[in-house]
């Protein structure tokens, strides 16, 4: 089973929720796909066994051999190349390149263009007790995390096991990529007008994708703003985590929520049981 923990924006408590779930689910894999700023490791403190670079294949032009015919740039539908014949110059925009290989394929000149590796991030894996830990991270300056997210989703998720994925925040391509194969999406939000408007966007995306969704309210102050909306769209609120200075403090010290507040542990056990049970029914 693949449970995705997501939120419309960062800082809603996605990490607290996903790490707590992983710790109560025990024999599971925790996968941090918040690739711009993965911080699940702060709470899970895994022993890292492996760190591998994540590379994309991109073109490299040898300006000594290239005839500046421009065929490669014409073939690139993503406009990632510019050829300036009169000055014998070539320009490449790595962030636009989708590693499709067309440019290399169409080049008529032997040895003018070749594919090379461009490292855009790292994948770390290890263990935190019985929890398997996987983390994707993109290097500073890399614009899109989508390739690394989709690689991890396609290669590291064993659907026979429980996988808890800490998704990228937001409502754009990275989050869609990290939840699209999920069986259940847990949306973490705060009971504020901002929290609500972000939640609405993510609920819509999740529903469009035909996913099962549940809401977790973090920093609950008793305000019912999320409850009203949840009822309207018929999405269950599965858990409320109270607003508490203690929780913030333990988070900043790297102590997982369920250790800092044992009463929350019970709730998370109930939550994971409920989700797993529902999944089995299908």
């Amino acid at each position: 089973m693949f449970i995705a923990v997501a939120s419309g924006k960062g800082g809603t408590g996605k990490t607290i929720v996903s790490t707590s779930l992983a710790l109560v689910a025990k024999n599971c894999t925790y996968i941090d796909l918040d690739v711009e700023e993965p911080n699940g490791y702060v709470l899970l403190k895994p022993e890292i066994e492996k760190e591998i670079p994540f590379n994309l294949r991109v073109p490299k032009i040898d300006e000594q051999v290239c005839t500046f015919c421009g065929k490669c740039a014409d073939a690139c539908v993503y406009n990632a190349l510019s050829i300036i014949p009169h000055l014998k110059k070539t320009l490449f925009y790595p962030d636009l390149c989708h590693s499709c290989g067309h440019c290399t394929y169409v080049c008529p000149v032997n040895g003018a263009i070749e594919e090379v590796n461009r490292e855009i991030g790292k994948i770390r894996s290890g263990r935190s007790g019985v929890v398997k830990f996987i983390e994707g991270r993109i290097d500073v300056g890399v614009i899109s995390g989508v390739p690394i997210i989709s690689w991890i989703v396609n290669n590291y998720i064993d659907s026979n096991e429980i996988n808890i994925v800490d998704s990228s925040p937001g409502t754009s391509c990275p989050v869609v990529e990290s939840v699209k194969k999920s069986d259940y999406i847990l949306l973490v939000t705060e009971p504020t007008p901002f929290g609500l408007s972000d939640l609405k966007l993510t609920v819509e995306i999740a529903k469009d994708m035909g996913k099962k969704v549940g809401i977790i309210v973090n920093k609950d102050t008793g305000i019912k703003i999320i409850d009203v909306y949840a009822k309207e769209v018929n999405v269950p609120i599965l858990l409320k985590i109270p607003y508490s200075i203690e929780i913030q403090k333990s988070y900043s010290k790297g102590i997982p929520l369920i250790e800092a507040m044992p009463e929350m542990k019970v709730k998370f056990v109930e939550l994971i049981d409920k989700i797993l049970c529902e999944n089995e029914k299908n």
Binding site: G70, Y78, N79, A80, S82, I83, P85, H86, L96
Partner: peptide, 17 residues
Amino acid sequence: GAHGVGIETGNYVIKSG
């Protein structure tokens, strides 16, 4: 176009001479 229209146009300017 959806991707890199600025670059496409830039390339076109260069090609136009």
